[in-house]
């Protein structure tokens, strides 16, 4: 009984330690699960060269109930599907696919992105002055944006309309890939979509 105080406080310390241990996250667990599909880094590298500003084309997480920070109006006659956290929306213009992607920062910069898109349609890279000269400007509730019509006349089957919309330290990319004739037909609707961009 002489040691009662020491034992009592020792017990309290032990409870304290046990409690701390339950919140310890330095655990290592090993277990078996059912197989999940794996997409390798190599295929990802291929996908990263997609014109969406870097994110893979084929892999799209289902839309979440979380509201997007941005809003837009899909033009009449176009279809749309919800996107993932970075792909805000996918849309269909006369059967041709487009999307609105949001990435942090400048996502590599305007010139690098434009040259990457040019490379995809078989056009040579341009310097900054030429890129800025080719840019046309529009305005949405998010501010001024630049848009590009990237067409290789010797191969007009894969052309694209792209708008680069800086907002809140991020960059929104609105992109529609289609043959040149389809792009021209849908150009006004594409621009109305870009102009409708706003904060939700």
């Amino acid at each position: 009984m002489k040691r009662f105080p020491a034992l009592f406080f020792l017990s309290l310390a032990l409870v304290f330690c046990l409690f701390s241990c339950t919140r310890n996250d330095l655990k290592i667990e090993t277990y078996q699960t059912e197989k999940q599909p794996v997409v390798s880094n190599e295929s990802m590298t291929q996908q990263m060269m997609s014109p969406q500003g870097g994110m893979p084309e084929q892999v799209s997480a289902p839309a979440s109930q979380e509201p997007s920070a941005y809003g837009w109006d899909i033009p009449k006659g176009w279809g749309s599907e919800p996107g993932s956290s970075m792909r805000l929306v996918s849309f269909k213009a006369d059967g041709h696919t487009g999307s609105i992607i949001v990435l942090e920062g400048e996502a590599g910069g305007l010139v690098a992105n434009v040259n990457r898109w040019r490379e995809q349609v078989g056009l040579p890279a341009q310097d900054e002055a030429a890129v800025l000269k080719a840019a046309r400007k529009g305005k949405s509730a998010l501010g001024e944006f630049r848009w590009f019509e990237i067409v290789n006349d010797s191969s007009p089957g894969q052309s694209m309309l792209v708008a680069v919309v800086p907002a809140d330290g991020k960059t929104l990319f609105v992109k529609l890939m289609a043959p040149k004739a389809a792009l021209q037909k849908n150009q006004e609707k594409f621009l109305s979509l870009c102009r409708s961009l706003r904060r939700a």
């Binding site: 290592i28 699960t33 059912e34 197989k35």
Partner: peptide, 16 residues
């Protein structure tokens, strides 16, 4: 992911 019929997972907690 090598086993044909299952995945073998090693998970390190947030403390790491």
């Amino acid at each position: 992911t090598s086993p044909a019929d299952h995945d073998q997972v090693t998970a390190f907690g947030a403390g790491w």
